[in-house]
């Protein structure tokens, strides 16, 4: 479904992503782990269209999405959830999630879908709360909820468990497992392989910008 071929990216003359190849099938979950600065986030951002690669190709289905803008990539069905959550701070949790739904449905339908997503992620009780008042764990779930609102076929989750205590990390992990059961294909990054073990079908390690498959 998603094929990344020989992608490289340099920033400030430093190679961040080096000749990366990967394939993701429908419903498959890939876990990428590696230390800080290994290029995990940059790779996901390149796939999402937030950063343009220097060379290589990204094909989604039959479409070459390498140089599409992020809005067009989202439209095709790939959505990126930021490592450090970027909520719409002055808006309610409900409105935060509704933004994505509104781009696809009428207001009435969008409201219904928003409610479904909030329920799925267990944050429906926070619906009316301002995003700026959420805790870090709640923000992580909101970030995933926002990504789900775009109805993606592929979710790119950038370190969804980072900067969380064990309890919150496990809550987020359980929700991600539920998403896997719902059939979402995902690429998830993390510092360590351990937390990805129960979620991912395939694993890869990123080091110095290069991706190595792991079993």
């Amino acid at each position: 479904m998603l094929r990344v071929k020989s992608i490289s990216k340099s920033i400030n003359h430093r190679i961040i992503v080096r000749d990366v190849n990967l394939e993701l099938d429908e419903g498959e979950v890939m876990g990428i782990f590696g230390p800080n600065g290994s290029g995990k986030s940059t790779l996901l951002k390149v796939i999402a269209g937030i950063i343009k690669p220097d060379c290589g190709r990204i094909v989604f289905g039959d479409t070459d999405i390498t140089f599409l803008d992020v809005e067009e990539v989202v439209e095709k069905g790939i959505c990126y959830a930021f490592q450090i959550p970027r909520p719409f701070r002055e808006m309610s949790v409900f409105e935060n999630v509704m933004v994505g739904c509104l781009l696809r449905y009428s207001k009435k339908e969008a409201k219904k879908r928003t409610e479904d997503i909030l329920r799925k992620l267990g944050i429906v009780h926070l619906a009316e709360r301002k995003a700026s008042q959420l805790s870090q764990g709640e923000l992580k779930l909101l970030e995933i909820a926002k990504a789900l609102s775009t109805e993606p076929a592929v979710l790119l989750l950038d370190e969804p468990f980072a900067a969380l205590d064990m309890k919150n990390a496990l809550t987020v992990r359980d929700k991600v497992i539920e998403l896997k059961k719902d059939g979402y294909a995902m690429i998830i990054t993390a510092h360590r392989m351990r937390i990805l073990r129960e979620i991912a079908d395939t694993f890869a390690e990123m080091r110095g910008g290069m991706l190595h498959a792991k079993s």
């Binding site: 999402a48 937030i50 992020v70 809005e71 989202v74 439209e75 959505c79 990126y80 930021f82 970027r86 909520p87 719409f88 701070r89 002055e90 808006m91 409105e95 935060n96 509704m98 933004v99 994505g100 509104l102 781009l103 207001k107 969008a110 926002k146 990504a147 609102s149 775009t150």
Partner: peptide, 24 residues
């Protein structure tokens, strides 16, 4: 209160995050 207004509010709060959701 409109859909357009909510999308515009998202742009005000965080352009990149709005863009990442597909907002033009």
């Amino acid at each position: 209160r409109t859909g357009l207004g909510i999308k515009m509010g998202a742009v005000r709060d965080d352009e990149l995050a709005a863009k990442a959701l597909g907002v033009k």
